Simulated scan of single mutants.
Amino acid sequence: MTYSKPSLAFPHSWNVALWGRLHILNLDDIEAAARIIYAHMPATPQHRWPLLGEALGCEVWVKHENHSPIGCFKLRGGLSYLSYLAEAGLAPNGVIAPTRGNHGQSIAYASRLFGLPAYIVVPHGNGPEKNAAMRAHGAILIEHGDDYQQAREFAIGLEQSKGLHMVRSFTPQLLRGVATYPLELLRSVEDLDAIYVPIGMGSGICATLLARDLLGVHTQVIGVVADGAPSYALSFEAGHVVTTDTAETVADGLACRSPDPGATKLICERAERIVRVTDEEILAAAALMLRATHNLVEGAGAAALAALTKEREVMRGKKVAVIASGGNLDTSLLPRLLPFLVVGGE
């Protein structure tokens, strides 16, 4: 299912409040973040994969954010944001962040680099491997609630009671770091017709929209959500934030039920459309990615390829990129992936 872009009257310039003031991101901001990020990790590759092109009938490029030191794009935002906090002395008691895994890994990794204690709140039943990775990076892990939203609300309470600084998933200082990956992609691969970007809390797609517009290119940016976590698709259709009671999907990085208002505004204004994909389509895309590129990606990392597969007739003959946003697949999902590998290999 897809939703077409609604007609909205949002202004083209995008301002975001940051500690009581307005800040407009520009190329200088993103390039300043890149200097911080490249001190700790290299730029990730973007590759054209012929087998994906044969399967989908178009030229397919993959931006491999699964190749970062924590296996996902989130580290860029964490490095940018925590560097700012450390330099400004804004988190003397440490930071806290709610997560399903990748945001938490980013904050834990960056906090250790910049000497800040990190408290990470996850819902009960969160992926044990991601929990172990966050602890390995030095985070103090707290389990609370049945889903991300309940973990987030608990984290907000701890922020206030313990005097911690909460690292939210959508702020300008974080977004400038995330925007380094679409900047790399768009500067390396010219004349892209479209980029498919998975949507969790919205930083990845918003960063892509900003980078595209700052570079002045005309690439379509298409968001992707899980069918069982459609809050951003519903918000895009309505033109305002729409929450859902549940967010059930194999792609835990997409399991959002309460969209960020700032992200919603930018997506509604500038994205081309949002595509919904089922869990079966996500697993099939992960299997296709493994067969065609030998990269094992998590559910959110396969979602963009799932959406392109769904829209392959629309994109036939075009030059398209998909964002492999992460590779931290919960190995308990491997049995569900295997049938798609067998079918695909026959």
Rank of each mutant, 00 (worst) to 15 (best):
D146S: 07
H218S: 14
A287L: 02
F340K: 01
E281V: 05
G299M: 00
A300I: 11
S106H: 00
V242R: 04
R135I: 14
D28H: 02
E184K: 05
S332Q: 06
L85P: 05
G204N: 06
P182W: 07
L210G: 06
I195R: 00
G262S: 13
I120D: 12
P98R: 10
L305T: 14
L333C: 10
S106A: 14
A34N: 13
D260I: 10
R76P: 12
A32K: 15
D245F: 00
L209W: 11
L18T: 01
A229T: 03
E143H: 07
I282F: 03
A300H: 15
G253L: 07
G125W: 13
L333E: 06
A9C: 12
G125E: 15
N15D: 14
R135L: 06
A271P: 02
R135A: 15
H67Q: 12
A33R: 05
L90E: 14
P69E: 05
P11L: 03
S80M: 11
F10N: 09
E272D: 11
H294D: 13
G239V: 13
G177V: 09
A287S: 06
T246V: 12
A306F: 02
E272M: 09
I195P: 02
G115A: 13
R273Q: 15
G228H: 08
D227G: 01
L175D: 08
Y3A: 04
E248L: 15
A43P: 15
G301K: 09
A136E: 15
E313F: 06
Y119I: 02
S83D: 10
I156W: 00
T243W: 07
C72Y: 00
L209S: 10
L174V: 04
A118C: 06
R135F: 12
H144P: 00
P45H: 09
E87K: 15
T244Q: 08
L210T: 01
R168C: 05
A118R: 08
H103A: 15
A9Y: 10
R291D: 13
P69H: 11
A139P: 13
T309L: 02
R316A: 14
S106V: 11
W61M: 00
D29V: 07
S203R: 09
A292L: 11
P123D: 11
A211Q: 10
A86F: 06
A207C: 12
N126F: 08
R187D: 01
H12K: 12
D147A: 02
E346F: 03
G299I: 00
G53T: 09
C206L: 10
L305G: 14
R48M: 02
G163M: 15
L337D: 11
A133W: 05
L215D: 03
Q150C: 03
P182Q: 02
P128S: 08
E237H: 13
S7C: 09
G253N: 04
L283A: 09
R135W: 14
L79P: 02
K63F: 08
L192E: 04
S13V: 08
Y232K: 08
V167C: 15
G157T: 00
L175V: 14
I107T: 01
Y119G: 01
N66G: 06
